[in-house]
Nucleic acid binder design. Sequence first.
DNA 1: ATCGGTACGTCATACGTATGACCGTAGTAC
DNA 2: GTACTACGGTCATACGTATGACGTACCGAT
Lengths: 330, 330
Amino acid sequence: MDVAHAAGVSQATVSLVLSGKAAGRISETTAAEVRRCARELGYRPNAAARALRSGSASAVGLVVSDVTHPFFGRTLRGAQRAAWEAGHVVVLIDDAYGAAWGDGSVEALRDGAIDGFLFFAATPPASLQAPGSPPVVVVEARTERFPHVVLDVDAGTDQVLDHLEALGHRKIGYYRSAIAGETFDRRLARWTARLHALDVDPGAVAVGAGRFTAVEAIAGAHDLLDRLGDTTAVICDDDVLASGLSTAARERGIDVPGRLSIVGFDDLDLALYASPPLTTVKAVPEDLGAAAFEVLLARIQSDERPENRTIPVELVVRGSTGPAPDLARG
Amino acid sequence: MDVAHAAGVSQATVSLVLSGKAAGRISETTAAEVRRCARELGYRPNAAARALRSGSASAVGLVVSDVTHPFFGRTLRGAQRAAWEAGHVVVLIDDAYGAAWGDGSVEALRDGAIDGFLFFAATPPASLQAPGSPPVVVVEARTERFPHVVLDVDAGTDQVLDHLEALGHRKIGYYRSAIAGETFDRRLARWTARLHALDVDPGAVAVGAGRFTAVEAIAGAHDLLDRLGDTTAVICDDDVLASGLSTAARERGIDVPGRLSIVGFDDLDLALYASPPLTTVKAVPEDLGAAAFEVLLARIQSDERPENRTIPVELVVRGSTGPAPDLARG
DNA sequence: ATCGGTACGTCATACGTATGACCGTAGTAC
DNA sequence: GTACTACGGTCATACGTATGACGTACCGAT
């Protein structure tokens, strides 16, 4: 190694200094000289060698089902910031709803290149459950199998329904994601329970399902509007679906919120483009990402299962919700 | 190595078989047995060891300035698909407009963990220009320094202006990105040249600048609308800005396209949520990403500078553009 | 019998770092 | 003068794979 030669010390000393383990073993004078030489020669430690020898790559993977969804991007950002502070790196892998390269990338990186995985709305492949697999933390899905970090969707759903009920809405529909996900199931269940509490038959309100692209969100919204009946408000699994519903309503001349109130989820940028801007449940994906990384790091470092975490959410009231119309008179 | 033992061969043989270099050296019978044992034992090659020994990690990094922007997500997807077909992996790093962890991640991965980098709307750090640096390919910016892959924005701009001129527009404004970027500069220059050809003073039309978040895009759009004058159409650096302009116009009661025509760029999902849906220049980011990976791979494998590539674009006419109004009569 | 060639494998080493086991020197206590 | 400790640093090896340099056995041709 050049640096060792230039500084007149052994390679071991260089390694100790540069990896910050010099305390008590190497004098500060020598350490400073080593650092100076390293800088001058433009020395970069080889990540592969480091990972091979130490058994840790200081890198974790974030696997998402759809990198196209704005929520994931902000989550990645939060995770990267937290990781950076801990001396780690986060790399993102797009699963594209089960594409071959998603699992492929996981397989390619799992041994040696990555210390652990975060799965966000993507399903960990079975191979990651085998003993000896790298640690996994799941985001936005409650499961016994892995430690997880989730949004407090129960509170979010409750706040939405409180808000709508206060506005006089009783027939509250639901625009579901066509993507499977524990978090969606859970919200739907909560909504069903609340409707029962209101003594409203869930069968009497409009329900639809759509996917997170504009075309499909709008198409699904039209299906839902076909069966609108006397539903006066619809809560949506996310802002993409809500935007689609808003657009579809406009195409049909349905007044929002005069005739129909719409509530989204996530508080994406999208919520502000809609007209009127969407009432939605604000989540802070950066916090979710950061928390997810922290849990994964704890798992990596201690080998004992860390505690699950729940990130709070908050209702943001904008123009897309208003008092329930009196349909009997209209 | 267990597999070698189980199959009754040497570790070298296992390596040859599993890395596909067995042809002519190892009999098919033996190879099959090795593969069987490997499968049975759940053997996974160690990526770090492989990278260390072979000097190639079979992984490339895609660095983007803002992972939140939907365009990048689709680009990543295209790159990952192409990479997968070539036996590589693409990992995404969010630079977050120059955040510490962006450069940090690049530095951490550049030696040993990554074979090369794609920079998309993010600036390669100076350290990547030093001799001995990993290969770099730049996306959506023409530069002498690195091979690059770009959209045919000249053609796109021309198609937009042809379209607007055919509709009778002469005072055509511009909504610029506040983010620096060669591609934006180039489009602006083209627009200026075309206005001169029309004998229109660029100073006589509305120009604004905004960033790619809803709040800032809408705020910037209001600035632009304050100085609208008799501008009858505005072309935007991307669909996010166009959506912001559309929203701002609606807030002011400006009829689109009756009073003002709006043209976006990219054909994001966003374009469909706007009301009316945006006329825009359709780019296929998946193709861009795939091409970028291919160019990088060529660079990695051959050491000689590969040819630059240009990806075609296409105007998509929707509801946000219409005939120029007769402002003298209005 | 010898040689050349081919088919099939193995040997041994190197990749660049991290780290537990050492080792020398100087200082301190007795 | 001896024993012990603390300090500052080096040695040697291992991590798991890839690969150029070698064997070895067998076959056919001379």
